[in-house]
Amino acid sequence: MVSFKLNGQRVSAESGATVLETARFYGVPIPTLCEMEGLTPFGGCRLCIVEVGEGEAAKLVTACTAPAQEGLRVRTASKRVIASRRMIVELLLASCPQSKVVQDLAAAMGVHQQRFRQEHEDCLLCGRCVRMCKEQMMSGAIGFQGRGGDRRISTPFDAKSDVCRRCGGCIYVCPACQLRCTFNDPERAVCGGCANLSPPCVGHGQFDDMQCYMDPCAACRIAGA
C-alpha cells in the first residue's frame, strides 16, 4: 500500500496501481481516451494528464501510466491541467471531428470549436486496436507503421493479413470508427451510430483510408442481408 495526496486528500492505493486507477477508485474523474480496461496503458492520447509535484517543479504526467507512489501530490483539475487538456481535445477535434468519442470528450470540457486547420483523419493513433488485437485477441495482425505525420495503423505490407481472425475486436474498441461502418446504404445498415456523413470504406482502395481489416466485413454482411 502506498499513500499520496490527490487534490489535497490523502488517498491510499495498492502498490503497482496507477494514479488513474486510484483516482477512479476515489471517484475523481479524469478523462481518458487511449486507456482501456484490460489493455496495457499506452499514454498516447495525453488526455488524462494531471499535475504532479508542487510549484515550479510541478510536472504534467499521464495518469494512466503514472504509478501511484508514496508521497505524490497530484492535482487533477488545476488551471494548468484544464488548459492543457482543452488544448489536447481541441487538437483531437481538429484531426478527427467525426469521432463521437472525441465530440463527447470535447463537449464535456466545454470545447465546442477548434482553431486549427480542419482535418478528417480516420485514426487518432490511440493504439487501442493494436493492443486489443495483440493482448486480448492474441492475434497481432496490425501494428503502428511509419512515424511523425506518416504514422498509421495497418497490416504488414498493407496486405490482407494471414493472422487476422476477423474477430472485429479492433473495430469494436476504436474511438474513431466505433460502429461506424455503414456499408453503402446507411439507412439499412446496423450501425452508423457515429453518423458519419460519408461511409469511409466506400470508394477507397482496400485498407487505404479505413481501419477495417475484416474482409468480408461481418457487419456489412449483416447489413446487406
Partner: peptide
Amino acid sequence: PEEALRFVAEKTGRPLRDLYGVATF
C-alpha cells in the same frame, strides 16, 4: 524484400507487424 522480412520474422520469432513497424519507422 517482403520474403526476406517474412523469413526474418520466422527465424527471430518476432511478429512481422513489429518488424514492419520498425522498418517503416
